[in-house]
Structures are given as C-alpha cells and as structure tokens.
C-alpha cells in the first residue's frame, strides 16, 4: 500500500490546508470538520534545506537533511531530504517513509529525493 500525506480541502471554498486546521484559513467556515481529505502530490521544488548536526536523542545519525518543498499544487511541506548535495529550486520527489521512531511507534512522513 502506498502511503500518503494528506491535505485538507474546505468544503465551502475549496481552499487546501496542510497541516490540518479546524477552521478554514480563507473563508473561516465554522462548520465542524467540513474538510475533505486529499492526498498531497509527491513532486515539487526544493525551496530551502539544511543538514542538522545536533539532533534530538531519538535520531542516531550524525546529520539529517531537512527541507521545505513547494509541491506541484502550490502547497508547501516540511520533510526530510535524502540528497547528497542539494541545490535551491531543484526538482524533488517525495516518498512516505518512517521518519522518526517514537518509543514504540513509527511516524511516517515525506522523505524527498532528487527527481
């Protein structure tokens, strides 16, 4: 099964939100949970990135790539970046994988690689 990261689409005005929020940013519609789930596209452009060398204890690696990606539909997401030598604006494609082990649980999220 291919995993997805979901965006939330307002049923009233169609605005897409990521991450989840309970009230639409655009029309402030206040009907509870009036959002449709819509999987985010996987391709996009790398807006900025870093390699973190000083990580929380759960990460047993020396450095971790992170970046902000603007996806094809204009939504931006934060994700891990598994690219040796990234450049600003490069095309990337995301895959949904385990990004963090949290005591007993695995957390899934985007890992981006060069497209």
């Amino acid at each position: 099964m291919e995993r997805e990261v979901n965006a939330y689409k307002c049923r009233k005005c169609g605005t897409l939100h990521y991450p989840f929020r309970m009230v639409c940013k655009n029309c402030r519609a206040n009907d509870y949970f009036e959002f449709d789930i819509e999987p985010l596209p996987k391709r996009g452009k790398l807006l900025t990135f870093t390699f973190i060398h000083n990580l929380p204890a759960q990460f047993e690696v020396a450095r971790l790539g992170l970046g902000i990606v603007e996806l094809e539909n204009g939504i931006r997401v934060t994700g891990q970046v598994d690219i040796e030598d990234p450049t600003l604006g490069m095309d990337v494609v995301g895959n949904v994988e385990v990004v963090r082990h949290d005591t007993y649980d695995d957390r899934y999220g985007f890992v981006f690689r060069a497209a």
Partner: peptide, 29 residues
C-alpha cells in the same frame, strides 16, 4: 534541544526532527 523542538508543529514539523537551529538554518539559507 528536543524539549525546545516540541514547540514546532507536532505532525508537520516535529516528527521530521526539525529543531530550532534547523528552522534558523533554512531561514538563513
């Protein structure tokens, strides 16, 4: 570091290992 990182978005940032230095770095770039 992890404690301060808990102020980031729990589902869209924290899980990825985002720390405050990480945010500052992406901003700096």
């Amino acid at each position: 570091t992890d404690f301060v990182a808990t102020l980031t978005h729990p589902m869209a940032e924290y899980i990825y290992g985002v720390t405050l230095p990480g945010h500052a770095a992406m901003f700096t770039r």
